[in-house]
């Protein structure tokens, strides 16, 4: 295990080569897949109309990411370099199909609501990116951890977007009424645009700006043109 090339830090001892903590921190915060690497935006925007949908989608992505990272990593020594993309796509698609069938069998209504976006996890750049950038060079256990960490990073962003959109757009959270809307003789005038497409773009835009503000990204030394 200690012989494999390590892109992040040196190889220590133990089952995660002693870099479990760094890997986890990188996936969740430092190189957060959505806020920093701007990967997997499509689903982050499409399914976040309610908090519940966001949560199910996050579970789906975490599941696929952990599973595909494990298998890509296990097969990394026997996969010829030239066909690695096809191999990765096949592994990812398999896990997506497993999840899709599970969802259809146990939570059919949820599967109807998520529609084609579960299938679109195949082209979600987070999964592909982690397989390509991490699992190909690292042993299985730490690859699984990396997939899990990125899944959590994705979950945090998705659930925040879902939280604001459902709260401001429908006055509800997880389907329970938090703010009584005017339509139901309450006081909160519904902001329908938050549920529609533009609300998704604008919420995510502000969240990324907030992340940049908190993490001090975009400082004058490494300024890029907008």
């Amino acid at each position: 295990m200690a012989n494999s090339p390590a892109p992040i830090g040196g190889c220590g001892s133990g089952i995660c080569c002693g870099k479990g903590k760094e890997t986890f921190k990188a996936g969740v915060w430092v190189t957060n897949p959505i806020a920093i690497q701007i990967l997997g935006i499509c689903s982050a925007l499409a399914v976040t109309t309610t908090l519940m949908n966001s949560l199910v989608m996050s579970i789906a992505l975490t599941f696929v990411c952990v599973g595909s990272n494990l298998f890509v990593s296990l097969l990394r020594d026997v996969t010829p370099r030239r066909v690695r993309m096809i191999a990765e796509v096949a592994i990812i698609a398999t896990f997506v199909i497993i999840f899709d069938l599970l969802l259809k069998a146990f939570y059919f209504e949820m599967s109807e609501q998520l529609g084609p976006y579960v299938g679109l996890i195949i082209t979600n750049c987070i999964v592909m990116g982690r397989a390509e950038a991490f699992a190909l060079q690292n042993p299985p256990v730490v690859s699984m951890l990396d997939g899990f960490a990125n899944g959590i990073g994705y979950t945090i962003v998705l659930c925040s977007v879902g939280f604001f959109r459902e709260l401001l757009g429908a006055g509800q959270l997880f389907g329970y009424t938090i703010m009584e809307t005017v339509a139901n003789k309450g006081w909160y005038p519904q902001n329908v645009v938050m549920i529609l497409a533009p609300g998704a773009f604008i919420t995510l835009g502000f969240l990324i700006a907030l992340y940049n503000y908190m993490s001090g990204a975009n400082d004058p030394d490494k300024e890029t043109s907008p």
Partner: peptide, 23 residues
Amino acid sequence: VPRPFKGVAVVMIITGIMAMIFM
């Protein structure tokens, strides 16, 4: 553009406005 909004953040917000226009 205000600093935290530089890059993707402002592009997202513009896309949102574009989506409103297309509505």
